[in-house]
Design a binder for these strands. Structure first.
Length: 271
DNA sequence: AAGAGACCCTGGATGC
DNA sequence: TGCATCCAGGGTCTCT
C-alpha cells in the first residue's frame, strides 16, 4: 500500500524511465479508473510528452506539454514500463503507448486507484495539509493545528488535511518511535510529544525514501519499486512478536478503523 | 466535530 | 478438496 515514500520512489523511477516519452495512443481497459470522460482523457493526452514529475502527499503529478495528469495509486496501483509487444497482465487497466514502442501500463488489482486530468495552472490538490518533509511542517504548525482538535492521534496522522502522505504503516511506526499511544487524544499531547511526533515523522519517512519504500503484502514486484524499508519496521505487522525496545508482546487492535500495531508498555495512554 | 459504517474491489486466509 | 465468508484499507460520502 503505497504511502509517501513509495509514491516518491515511483515518481523517481518513472522520471528515469519515461521522461521525454511522447504518447501515441491510449487504451483504457477499465474506465472507472479515469475521473471524467475517458474519451476526453485520451484526446487531451495523445500527442503530449511527459515533461515533469512531481508528488504531493500520496498523489503523483505528471506534467505534460499543456496538461497535468494526477494519479493516486490507492491500495495497489502500480506502473510498469514494458515493450508494446509484451503480454498484458490480468489487472492492467490503462496503457499509454509511446512513439518509442514502449508502454506505460497502469496495473491495479483492486481497481481503487484514480487518474484525473487538470490544467497546469490548476494542479493543486484541494484539502491537503503540509508536506511532512517540508519546513512548513514543524512544531509550531502542529501545535496550532492541535489547539482545537480532539481526535485520537492516529486518526490525526492519517488525516491528509493535517499532513499529507502518511498511511497506516508509517503512522504506527511514527507513534511507536515517539512512544505515543495511537488512541491518545491530541488535546493531551504536550509540547514534548509534539516535538517527537514531528521529528520522527520526518526521520522515518526520510529513511523509508532512502530505502526505496516498504514492500509488504501485494506491494511487490512492481517495476523498480521493491523497497527495503520493511526490514526497518518495528511494530507494524509484528503482532505477538517482541517489542524491540522493551521485549513486551506487540499487540494489534483497531484504532481509527484501521488495524493498528503497538507496544502496550512503551506506548501508554496518559491518565 | 468526531467517529462509525458503507462503498469501491480482489485475492488470500480462514472455517466448516 | 471445495465452497462460503471474512478481512485488508485510502479516500469519499452519509449518518448520528
Amino acid at each position: 500500500m503505497p504511502e509517501l515514500p513509495e509514491v516518491e520512489t515511483v515518481k523517481a523511477t518513472l522520471e528515469n524511465l519515461i521522461k521525454g516519452e511522447k504518447i501515441q495512443d491510449i487504451d483504457i481497459l477499465y474506465a472507472p479508473i479515469i475521473k471524467g470522460d475517458p474519451e476526453v482523457f485520451k484526446k487531451r493526452l495523445i500527442g503530449q510528452t511527459f515533461r515533469k514529475f512531481k508528488r504531493r502527499g500520496k498523489y503523483l503529478i505528471f506534467e505534460l506539454d499543456d496538461v497535468a495528469l494526477i494519479s493516486h495509486l490507492r491500495m495497489e496501483g502500480k506502473y510498469f514500463v514494458q515493450k508494446r509487444s509484451e503480454p498484458i497482465f490480468k489487472h492492467t487497466h490503462v496503457i499509454f503507448h509511446f512513439e518509442s514502442l514502449m508502454d506505460l501500463r497502469y496495473d491495479d488489482t483492486r481497481k481503487f486507484g484514480r487518474m484525473e486530468l487538470r490544467e497546469l495552472s490548476d494542479e493543486e490538490i484541494k484539502g491537503l495539509g503540509q508536506e511532512p518533509l517540508s519546513d512548513d511542517f514543524n512544531e509550531e504548525y502542529a501545535l496550532k493545528y492541535l489547539k482545537n482538535n480532539h481526535k485520537q492521534i492516529k486518526a490525526l496522522l492519517l488525516d491528509q488535511s493535517f499532513v499529507a502522505g502518511i498511511g497506516n504503516i508509517y503512522a504506527d511506526e511514527i507513534l511507536f518511535s515517539a512512544k505515543i499511544h495511537p488512541e491518545e487524544r491530541t488535546l493531551k499531547l504536550n509540547p514534548k510529544d509534539i516535538k517527537k511526533l514531528v521529528f520522527f515523522t520526518k526521520e522515518i519517512l526520510s529513511k523509508a525514501i532512502e530505502a526505496g519504500g516498504t514492500t509488504i503484502r501485494s506491494y511487490t514486484s512492481s517495476l523498480g519499486v521493491s523497497g527495503r524499508f520493511q526490514m526497518n519496521l518495528r511494530v507494524h505487522t509484528k503482532e505477538g512478536q517482541m517489542c524491540p525496545v522493551c521485549g513486551s508482546k506487540i499487540i494489534k487492535k483497531r484504532v481509527a478503523s484501521r488495524g493498528t500495531y503497538l507496544c502496550p508498555k512503551c506506548q501508554r495512554l496518559k491518565k
